Amino acid sequence: MRFWPLWLIVIIGSLVSCGSTAPALPPIAANQPNQILLLNELDGIGANSTITVLTPALLSQPNTILAAAIELGDQPIAYQPTLAIPAQTFAITNSYGVLRVNGVLKSSTEFEPITVKVVEPTSINLGELNQNLSVYNNQVLRLNGTLLLKDQAALLVEEVGSGGVPTANAAQITVEQIPSQSPLVQQLPNEQGNIRYGQITLVGMLRGKSLHVFWVEAQP
């Protein structure tokens, strides 16, 4: 019989817990433009509802593609779900960015924007974030750390020691909507049992105590 190290059992338990017992998001009420939604929360929103979405976007002609998440590269790839809005002029110098769009959802595929705002991610460390979760709720953040990944359950940890063991009192946050197809995620360099881990940078929206990932970057 093979005996697992205690620290590995603890990490696995934490990841499984994050993946299986995370509280459900509150129901979305239509026609509340001040309520910020993620793109995959639009199911059940009635036609002609006024909503506000915060989402990564691929900027192109004739439409700008709003996406649940994107993979960066010479030609960024969008992950489902996606939604198109008419192309507009944005103060973004590259082909992607984060947009806050207030508008009318005409149908599951048609979104008529009223206002569009470019949102720049705020860079913050995990320690500071953990002490100010309410301050940064619903904001777009850029976080560095070590990603611990088991299946679709993930944690971003401030610091790990030998073998990927989180250091004592290391700040951490649950990661949701991790784009597992991204090469940066697939190629995490370290493995312990069925947990893969490595340093990474995540950009996404903070919702409560979880980060909903928009895209991943290699740490500088």
Rank of each mutant, 00 (worst) to 15 (best):
G208P: 02
G44M: 08
E110I: 13
D43I: 11
G198D: 01
I65G: 01
L99P: 10
G193D: 02
W4L: 14
G164H: 08
A168T: 10
T64N: 04
Q61K: 13
C18N: 11
A91W: 05
L6W: 12
N40C: 05
K117W: 07
N169K: 11
G163Q: 12
I12L: 12
I114W: 05
V185F: 04
N132K: 13
A154E: 06
A218F: 00
G161H: 11
S123F: 11
L37V: 04
A218H: 01
L72R: 09
A57F: 05
A218G: 06
Q187Y: 10
S182P: 08
E120F: 07
T115P: 04
S49E: 10
P76F: 07
I45G: 07
Y197M: 03
V101T: 08
S210Q: 13
L211A: 02
N190D: 09
S20P: 02
L105D: 03
G193F: 06
E159K: 15
E217K: 09
V135D: 13
E176I: 01
K209N: 15
L58E: 02
Q139C: 05
R196S: 12
L42R: 12
T52H: 04
A69E: 02
L188E: 03
L129R: 08
Q192R: 11
Q177Y: 12
T21E: 07
E120A: 11
A218N: 09
G73V: 04
T55F: 00
S210A: 15
A91L: 09
A24L: 14
I28G: 02
V119W: 07
L25T: 00
L37Y: 05
P27C: 02
T122L: 12
A84P: 04
W4V: 15
S210M: 04
L141F: 02
Y96S: 11
Q88V: 10
P62Y: 07
Q88S: 15
N130P: 05
A154W: 04
Q32H: 08
N169M: 10
A153V: 02
T93Q: 13
P5H: 10
L39D: 07
L83K: 03
S134V: 13
L38C: 10
P62M: 09
Q219C: 13
Q187N: 15
P56R: 06
S182Q: 09
I114F: 10
P26R: 04
G164N: 06
L147V: 06
N94W: 06
K209T: 14
L129K: 09
V140M: 06
T93S: 14
P189C: 10
W215P: 04
N132A: 15
L8E: 15
E191I: 08
N144E: 15
V135N: 13
P33V: 00
V10D: 15
Y96H: 14
Q88K: 14
I45M: 03
L37W: 07
I195H: 01
T146D: 03
E128L: 10
G198V: 00
